[in-house]
Amino acid sequence: MAVLYVLKVDEFKPLLDYAEAAEDLSISNHGAYQKIKTDGVLIIPRVATGLDPAIWFGALVGGFEGAIEEFSEDTLRIV
């Protein structure tokens, strides 16, 4: 299981939009945060979110559960 917590602010909305559309990710609402969760591997491709690197590389500020297998300019992969 992998979880990503995302503060509900404009700059991270593209992450939430991506997660909402992704079949293998579930998204739930918790006050100031949204929780992106998967029973498998949490994979987010940067280009698909539309985020530029400056914000992309700050996108884990809300914290996560699991282990980061990759966090590159292309891909976030949490297992």
Binding site: Y5, G62, G63
Partner: peptide, 17 residues
């Protein structure tokens, strides 16, 4: 590492929500 910090932050958020 920053991964350790992000994981701890995740614990704090989980406790909060």
């Amino acid at each position: 590492t920053i991964e350790d910090m992000w994981r701890l932050k995740g614990e704090k958020v989980r406790e909060l929500i």
